[in-house]
């Protein structure tokens, strides 16, 4: 390999390396500062508490890799919790029927948005913004108030702990990691995944190379819709309720996780494992702030904003130099 190629590759990894370094240093500082911080369970709790965010962020990674954005994810999560709670509690449908239905609904919603984006050449942010309005609005047409879930299967999912030696994880965390693994395989070992990268690199080129641009684009938004719906299902396990105000601002957290994980917002470059690191960083910020005790929860948002700033400027510098 020539030196130039090596350099180009390294430069692409800078955000990811920064994130990894950040994660390690945050965890080390936390371990030194606070009692009980340095434990495996703290790490596992990051996964347990952020399982739904991780799933949503995986879908967002697909979209961002194509150079798009999906602002509807938080609303779709909320709608999924709402529909689940409504069907299970108010209509007595079995969860095994409700969950696939909800997943199908999210996927179809995402597919439609992707179709509109591609066919009518409307900016993704405005289409998914409309999707966001629609999904939140539909929540309230079901119920203004929170619907709590008492279905035994749901509560079982909420309470189950899978032991891991002396530690434990929740089923949701396992599902989230499974989604990451499947997402990784799709992105790196299938034609669909490579087309996603190609689309983000240059849509024009992808078209001229004869790649299925429209199908890839709609699929990507459908994947994001599926992940959001799945995130919603995981959130119902976690919260045991459906509510139109669930997951407000989740789209921002998901975008932040993707960006901090080293995926370029202009598309074409990034890794799903980076997104996993990004979600862990966001979770760790929360953990540190809760361990600190004197810092209020809103510092989370400020720190995320500051990190976003640093990473976006970093991305800009990297891409500017490439040209």
């Amino acid at each position: 390999m020539n030196a130039n190629a090596l350099l180009t590759r390294l430069r692409g990894q800078i955000p990811l390396l920064v994130t990894a370094a950040l994660l390690v240093s945050m965890f080390s500082i936390g371990s030194v500062q606070y009692d009980g911080f340095f434990s495996g369970q703290v790490v596992l709790n990051l996964l347990i508490d952020n399982a739904f965010l991780l799933v949503v962020a995986v879908g967002m990674t697909f979209v961002v890799l194509t150079g798009g954005i999906d602002l509807s994810v938080g609303a779709v999560v909320a709608l999924s919790t709402m529909v689940s709670a409504w069907l299970v509690e108010r209509h007595g449908w079995p969860p095994l029927l409700v969950i696939p239905l909800v997943l199908l609904m999210g996927t179809a919603g995402g597919w439609v948005m992707g179709w509109v984006i591609h066919v009518f050449e409307i900016q993704p942010f405005i289409v998914t913004l409309a999707g966001m309005f629609l999904a939140r609005g539909l929540c309230y047409t079901i119920s203004i108030d929170s619907i709590s879930i008492t279905d035994p299967q749901y509560t079982a999912m909420a309470q189950t702990r899978i032991p891991l030696g002396s530690l434990f994880v929740s089923p949701s965390a396992v599902i989230a990691l499974l989604v990451v693994a499947v997402g990784f395989v799709v992105l790196h070992y299938t034609r669909l995944g490579r087309n996603v990268y190609a689309l983000g690199g240059s849509e024009q080129s992808a078209l001229l190379m004869g790649l299925p641009v429209q199908r890839t684009k709609t699929t990507v938004y459908a994947i994001s819709g599926f992940c959001s719906a799945l995130g919603g299902v995981l959130l119902t396990f976690y919260m045991l309720s459906g509510y139109g105000l669930h997951a407000v601002g989740l789209e921002l957290d998901a975008i932040a996780a993707v960006v901090i994980g080293g995926t370029l917002l202009t598309g074409g470059s990034g890794y799903l494992l980076g997104t996993l690191l990004g979600v862990l960083v966001l979770g760790l910020i929360q953990t540190v702030i809760s361990f600190q005790g004197t810092l209020s929860s809103w510092w989370t948002r400020i720190v995320i904003g500051a990190l976003l700033f640093v990473f976006i400027v970093l991305q800009r510098l990297i891409t500017a130099r490439r040209r």
Partner: peptide
């Protein structure tokens, strides 16, 4: 319910765009 205006807004956004 006032929150359902969001549904109207969604359709308006899409129509105008």
């Amino acid at each position: 319910p006032p929150e359902t205006t969001l549904v109207f807004k969604a359709f308006v956004v899409i129509a105008v765009c």
